[in-house]
Every structure is written in C-alpha cells, then in structure tokens.
Amino acid sequence: MKQPDLLISKLQEKDPQAFTKIYERYSESTYGIIYSIVRDKEIAEEVLQDVFIKVWENIESYNPSKGRFFTWLLNIARNTAIDKTRSKSFKNQKKNLNADYFVSIIEQKTSFSTAVNAIGIKKYIKMVEPYCKDIINLLFFQGYTQKETAEELQTPIGTIKTRSRNCIKSLRKLLINE
C-alpha cells in the first residue's frame, strides 16, 4: 500500500472529505497504538480525538521530505498518549504495565476488521520470538529511539537494528502467505 500522497495534499488544503478518508485509513491503527500506551478504552478514545484534531490543525507542518505521514501521525499519537499518562487524573489509576501488552490484546481479540489479515497476525503472535515482542513494543508502540531501546533491553545498538528488521520481516511474510 502506497502512501496516499494526493489525499494528504488535499488534507493540507483542509478538505473535509480527505480528512474522513485519512481517518478511515489510519484511525484503527492509531487507536491500537494509543490503547497500548494508556490501556483504557475511554481514555484512549479521548486521546484519539485529540490526535485527529491535531492532525487537522497541524497538517501544514507535515513535510513529506522529512518522513512518512504514518510516522508523523505515530509521533503525534504516542506523544499525546504519553502526555495523558503523565496527567494527574491518570496517575490515580492502576495500570497493567507488562511489556508485551499489544500481544495480549491481540491474543484476546476474536474479531478483526477487514483491513487486517487476522490469520497472519494471530499466527505471528503465536510463533514470534520473545525478543521481537519487546523490540516491537518499545520501538513501534511506545516510540523509544534505537538507543533507548538498546538501553532498556541491555542489547547492543546494532543488534536492535538487525533484530527489528528480522522481527518485522517475519511478520510481513506471514501477512503475505497466510
């Protein structure tokens, strides 16, 4: 799937229909990222709304020569979600903080939307190496840098790079072949 450049440039011209399409395309993934950080459906919904309001209001600041739109959106989502976890109201709540939270969500989930190859994803979660769960969780879901991930996992920085490639590569294989 290519990045929808035309849609993004229409969004930059503040076209509401482009906004709808961007939302339809990215909101479920964004919600998954936010939920894995705040771990509460209602709070995640609040954050998701804030994120897409920011997308609309700040879309001019997205510069295609600096990176992918998805990456830009991911950064907004993770930052907004992390800000939320630092807020007062949030601190009072007990949170489940195990590292592979995204794994348990997928394991428990029974129905997937059509955008997802559910069989491939489930198979991946079942067979994936434990270190992949950590790496994907930190790099992708939590937004750690390569260096922070290396420190957190006490692994050399170069290893993080090759492992993250291998971990995502095996996911891609299952998504194509299942």
Partner: peptide
Amino acid sequence: ALLQLSAAASPYNP
C-alpha cells in the same frame, strides 16, 4: 505490516 499489527491491537474500530 505495522499498520495491520497496530490495527489488530486496537480493541475495536473507532
């Protein structure tokens, strides 16, 4: 692949 993985980790489609 990552879009699908994170969509799968979403409790539901919002």
